[in-house]
Design a protein around this nucleic acid. Structure first.
Length: 274
DNA sequence: CTGGATGCCTGGGAGC
DNA sequence: TGCTCCCAGGCATCCA
């Protein structure tokens, strides 16, 4: 379930490794690491995973995390469903740890992902990263109504399904799609082309606020998600509809509805969302 | 072109 | 207690 707030919390938790040299890297599962073309095989160059480099900066767009090496190489990380990036002397000991970087100061950075929906991509440089990020919509923390209308305004898809499309807005997943629609008072099954301008405005504002609030609270820990120091995020207690089907709506007291929409479990308040 | 369906993968919980 | 089944969902891929 790592979505934008969880990945942003990871980015912030990894800031201590900026400027620290990477002494070595160990890959336990080769098929978790892919090159820019998506290939999982072939000889693995440790330099492509930043061995011998320093991490110059860590950037995020949507759910993607990029470690930019001072060699110009880029390591792109996607947490998928159950991915973690852990930092510290104990990192790398857990089961399902696929890549471990050992830093010059002895600390370790570990990519762990039991379900392996995530992965690590080695990109030759900034241009390759930019090319990938050009395929993504604006980052959810900065999304504006105009770009949502441009991407989705003529679509007949249900707005909930459309919000999961990373080309429309980057970083929204199942949890925050439901939460944003609740905050905006819009029913998840509404076709995009039926939304009017004030509704798009409310939706864009709701996405920004819901994501920013969850970032402030360190992301939502349901099961697997952890910050790099191993601690859980506190945003799940703020969920108003996600995983609350059958419970009372915090706003009107009516029952929260649950259904499968776009192959995803979806929760909303039929009284508050239209 | 759009949009719906499917498969990947593991751990945890429900149910028997 | 122990077994099986099902579900969680990001995203690539295939299909109508």
């Amino acid at each position: 379930m790592p979505e934008l707030p969880e990945v942003e919390s990871v980015r912030r938790g990894l800031r201590p490794l900026i400027g620290v040299p990477v002494a070595s890297v160990r890959v336990a599962r080769r098929d978790v690491v892919r090159d820019d073309a998506g290939r999982r095989r072939g000889r693995l160059d440790p330099g492509a995973l930043l061995a011998g480099a320093r991490v110059a900066s860590i950037e995020r767009r949507g759910k993607q995390l990029a470690l930019i090496g001072d060699t110009g190489r880029v390591v792109l990380i996607h947490l998928g469903m159950s991915g973690q990036v852990l930092l510290g002397p104990e990192a790398g000991r857990g089961e399902h740890t696929h890549v471990v970087w050992t830093l010059g100061d002895g600390a370790k950075v570990a990519f762990r992902d039991p379900r392996r929906f995530g992965g690590v991509w080695t990109l030759p440089g900034r241009a390759a990263l930019d090319a990938r990020w050009r395929c993504l919509g604006p980052d959810g923390l900065r999304v504006r109504a105009e770009s949502l209308v441009e991407a989705l305004g003529r679509s007949r898809r249900a707005v909930k399904a459309a919000l999961l499309d990373q080309r429309a807005v980057a970083g929204v997943g199942n949890i925050y799609a439901d939460e944003s629609l609740f905050e905006a008072g819009i029913a998840p099954s509404r076709p995009c082309d039926a939304l009017d301008a004030p509704e798009w405005d409310r939706l864009a504002g709701a996405i920004r606020r819901v994501l920013a609030r969850a970032v402030r609270d360190g992301g939502s820990t349901l099961r697997d998600y952890r910050r790099p120091d191993g601690s859980a995020g506190g945003a799940a207690s703020g969920h108003k509809v996600y995983a609350r089907a059958g419970k009372a709506c915090s706003r009107c007291g009516g029952p929260i509805a649950g259904a499968v929409l776009a192959q995803r479990s979806t929760c909303w308040c039929p009284r508050c969302q239209h």
